[in-house]
Amino acid sequence: MRLAKLQRVSYPETVAEAIQILSDKKRGAVALSGGVSFVFSPLQSVEELVSLSRLPLNYIKRKNGGLRIGATTPIADLVTSRAVKNYGDGILWETAHRIGSTLNRNLITVGGNLVQPFIWSDLSTVVLALRAGIKIQGKKSRDLSAEEFFTRLPRQFLKRGELVTEIVFPPFPKNYRAAYEKFTLTENDFALLKVAVVLARSGRVCRDVIIVVGGATILPQRVLSAEEILRKKIGSQILVNEASEVAAEEIKVSRDIRCSEEYKRDLCRALVRGILERILLDQKVPEWKLF
């Protein structure tokens, strides 16, 4: 029988209680947030499921121009949040809005989407681009930068009893611009590729930039060499072309049954270039691409 060893489901009401249950080696417990990834690949040996649904982690808070988002917040709540829509040129909202379908977004949570890197885990790309911080609570609490968090698969470094509890999005200064694009076959499809770019501008000069490509590999990638080309330069079409070319060459691409590696590089070039033209060169895009 499937999940033959499953004995009970607990519903802790505090993070401390959840951590305590999850830390107990003997209980063989697994945490469930939205539960979607568990249904897809259940750990058959699990003895106890720890539903995080009653933890006080379902919130979106504005703080000093940034955002703090609780880990069990459903993606759907990001989509209906004015704070999210107004933050970071709307790229967090745009990302959330394009994760799966409305039905999926009601189940998938922010924490789950980051911790379980599935093909639909779109949040990681913007979380990395927006330089968010990830709060992990366990016996000891620790805060990781997105950069640190996405160096490995979360399940490789999250210790027993550790929970991602909050994502902290830093203030998004006035001179910053950001854009996100997800490329799919149908509107509710998994991404073939997604790109998020955040940059700091003064006039036409690109002060700083982060370019993140998701969907080429299971974890999001920063394309440092492309960033380097742009950093502290005056934006121009030649520069943008060069940066997108380098990004396309540079990214690692895992095998995907849906298209060739070359096509993913083509997409990377097109998406990076399109975004930079928009937010660095202020070029117009077709109306339907705006949200």
């Binding site: 379908s101 093909i119 076959l185 149908t186 509107e187 509710n188 499809d189 998994f190 049954i257 849906r258």
Partner: peptide, 28 residues
């Protein structure tokens, strides 16, 4: 525009689900 079977070199359908075999939804 989007529907297709993807076969392995052994003739196995690799996308027997709506995640990888796309069909149009309302937004399309």
């Amino acid at each position: 525009l989007v529907e297709r079977y993807i076969y392995s070199s052994r003739g196995e359908c690799l996308n027997p689900n709506y995640g990888y075999y796309n069909i149009f939804c309302t937004r399309d």
